[in-house]
Design a protein around this nucleic acid. Structure first.
Length: 579
DNA sequence: AGACTCACG
DNA sequence: ACGTACGTGAGTCTC
């Protein structure tokens, strides 16, 4: 590693940089202040340079970073894009990100930091600096990391080509990077008073529930401790544990199992209420107000691009993809996600996207006809499975059909269906059998997908995103069955992820022309959320709906449902008028 | 650090 | 006889 050359003079370096065809850069920043503390570079002849940026050098860097003819390579560049953007630099032509490349090559790895990649891809030890490292050591580490990134890029590019992942990389994942950076920089406005008031109410209810439960238990205990609850339920109160789930430490007290205990003892119902409210209070009502950024007054979550095995995004710090939707207080929490004065929240949801993808991938005649028909898909499924008229489908029957439609995308078994649809295992077996008679193409598709996983060791989406499943060759039936379910689910969930990512890229590119002040603020797997000036609502809704529905042509129509409101919690269907 | 539980799609 | 529906992230308890 000592072979790399070092440029000494800043102006010489900037002149040289401007003439490069491509370079690696790596930004160091302070975690607390989010300020750029240094930028290391690696140039074409393995020369490295470390820049302590001041106003002047950032000004000189701007035209270089914004020059579309100079390619920029880096590692985990989203944070860098955000930092540059906050300094008025709109970076162009990012053509390699080593973290994303490594993720596409093996999306199950979970860890794509430089230290790990240097070891696995370059057989090099590149340890993190010691805790008591000197400033010189840190500078040297930063410079070395730029060189490592260059070498990783050289190693990963042919691997992407070999695995046929280059198109996915260039056309979806890299263009998505600045979209995610912008979503994170945009953030979402929160009315913390709504959350604080709701938390006060919930705390009072929780106190009352606690008193009730202590009385029923005959003693006080920690309601948040599953172990203590287990002792109360099964030792002190002597409730039967038959038919209940088991974990590694004993009988489960999960919501599903408490539900089964409701008939045996009223304490179960009270615990269910306690759990529901305690969850909302600690995870959302109390937590979210603390995460409002003092500078922007908004919450800026992370949208992670290299986490999931299927190609979905994930969200963290905080997770804005699991904000409650159900119940009285669930609605209140969403009502705290507000649109600033003069704007509205606009939400666009793909309707039954995964089921449409199955219909298309499986080329299932019956399911394709159902979607083309435009009627409610679950009712149609119910009508066909039970051979009854559409008008005779009761809500109960429809609910069962909905469960089975969902279950198909997960590779369900009779037992799982029986549990979640609250029917007997025999009934579940019968439903599944009839389902595969009605949707024969789906049945064949699921079988072929498992066979493909076994032949190739991986499965893939329509865009060639791959998930490797070595467990499919396991001699242990349970391990193999698990891999088969993952094999079934990934092409469906992953294709949906590909599709919404493509839509996000198109929308991000063209939205400023339609409505320069509109912002993408959230992505929740099949939903995009925008903040839009009221006067632009009609044209933005029209543009977004059109972009989402036409981003790819399947064998069935793709439908995006539009909603609008003053907050994420009070959205009403938005009807687009014909022009 | 791991287990449990539960919020979302 | 049995542990079986996919993908996440976070708060809390326990050791």
């Amino acid at each position: 590693m000592s072979s790399c050359k070092i440029i000494q003079d800043k102006n010489d370096f900037l002149k040289k940089l401007a003439k490069e065809r491509a370079f690696v850069f790596n930004i160091d920043s302070s975690l607390s202040t989010e300020k750029i503390t240094g930028i290391s570079f690696c140039l074409s002849d393995a020369e490295t340079f470390y820049l302590s940026p001041d106003k002047k050098s950032l000004t000189k860097l701007k035209p270089i970073f914004e020059n579309r003819k100079i390619e920029k390579w880096g590692h985990d560049l989203k944070q860098s894009i955000k930092l540059l953007s906050q300094n008025g630099i709109d970076i162009q032509s990012i053509t390699f990100d080593t973290a994303i490349a490594a993720y596409l090559l093996n999306p199950g790895a979970r860890n794509y930091n430089l230290e790990t990649l240097a070891s696995t891809k370059l057989q090099k030890e590149f340890p993190l600096p010691e805790k008591n490292a000197s400033p010189d050591d840190l500078l040297e580490y930063s410079r070395q990391s730029a060189l490592i990134i260059w070498q990783l890029k050289e190693a990963l590019l042919p691997e992407l080509e070999e695995a046929n992942l280059l198109k996915l990389f260039k056309e979806i994942e890299l263009p998505l990077l600045p979209v995610l950076a912008e979503i994170e920089n945009n953030g979402v406005k929160i009315n913390s008073t709504i959350l604080e008031n709701a938390s006060k109410k919930v705390t009072i209810i929780l106190d009352e529930l606690a008193k009730k439960i202590y009385k029923m238990a005959g003693e006080e205990f920690n309601l948040d401790s599953p172990i203590q609850l287990r002792k109360i339920l099964f030792e002190k109160l002597g409730l039967k544990t038959q038919g209940l789930g088991r974990g590694k430490t004993g009988v489960s007290t999960s919501a599903g199992d408490l539900q089964k205990l409701k008939k045996a003892h009223p304490i179960a119902g009270e615990m269910l209420q306690y759990r529901e409210l305690a969850k909302l209070n600690s995870t959302y009502l109390e937590a979210l107000p603390k995460l409002i950024d003092k500078k922007t007054g908004r919450i800026h979550a992370d949208f992670n691009q290299t986490v999931t095995s299927t190609g979905r995004l994930s969200s963290s710090d905080p997770n804005l993809q699991n904000i409650p939707t159900k119940g009285e207080f669930g609605k209140v929490i969403r009502e705290a996600f507000i649109a600033p004065a003069g704007t509205k929240i606009l939400a666009a949801d793909y309707a039954h996207i995964e089921l449409r993808i199955i219909a298309s991938l499986a080329d299932d005649e019956e399911m394709i006809r159902a979607f083309k028909n435009g009627e409610d898909i679950h009712s149609q499924t119910a009508s066909k499975i039970w051979g009854i008229d559409l008008k005779d489908v009761t809500p109960e029957i429809r609910r069962a059909a909905k469960t089975i439609n969902f279950g198909v995308t997960y590779g369900m078994g009779a037992k799982g269906l029986a549990e979640s649809a609250e029917i007997s295992i025999n009934e579940a077996r019968e439903f599944i059998q009839k389902y595969f008679e009605v949707y024969e193409g789906v049945s064949n598709f699921l079988r072929e997908t498992k066979e493909k996983a076994y032949d190739l060791g991986y499965v893939e989406t329509i865009f060639g995103r791959k998930r490797y499943l070595p467990e499919i060759f396991s001699p242990i039936p349970m391990v193999k069955a698990e891999a088969e379910r993952m094999a079934i689910n990934m092409p469906i969930q992953g294709t949906a992820a590909d599709i919404i990512k493509m839509a996000m890229i198109k929308i991000h590119r063209d939205l400023p022309k339609v409505s320069p002040r509109s912002k993408i603020i959230l992505q929740v797997h099949d939903e995009l959320v925008f903040e839009t000036p009221e006067k632009d609502l009609e044209k933005v809704a029209k543009f977004v709906k059109d972009a989402m529905e036409k981003i790819i042509k399947l064998k069935v129509p793709i439908i995006a449902e539009m909603k609008v409101g003053d907050s994420w919690g009070e959205l009403k269907k938005f009807v687009i008028h014909n022009s």
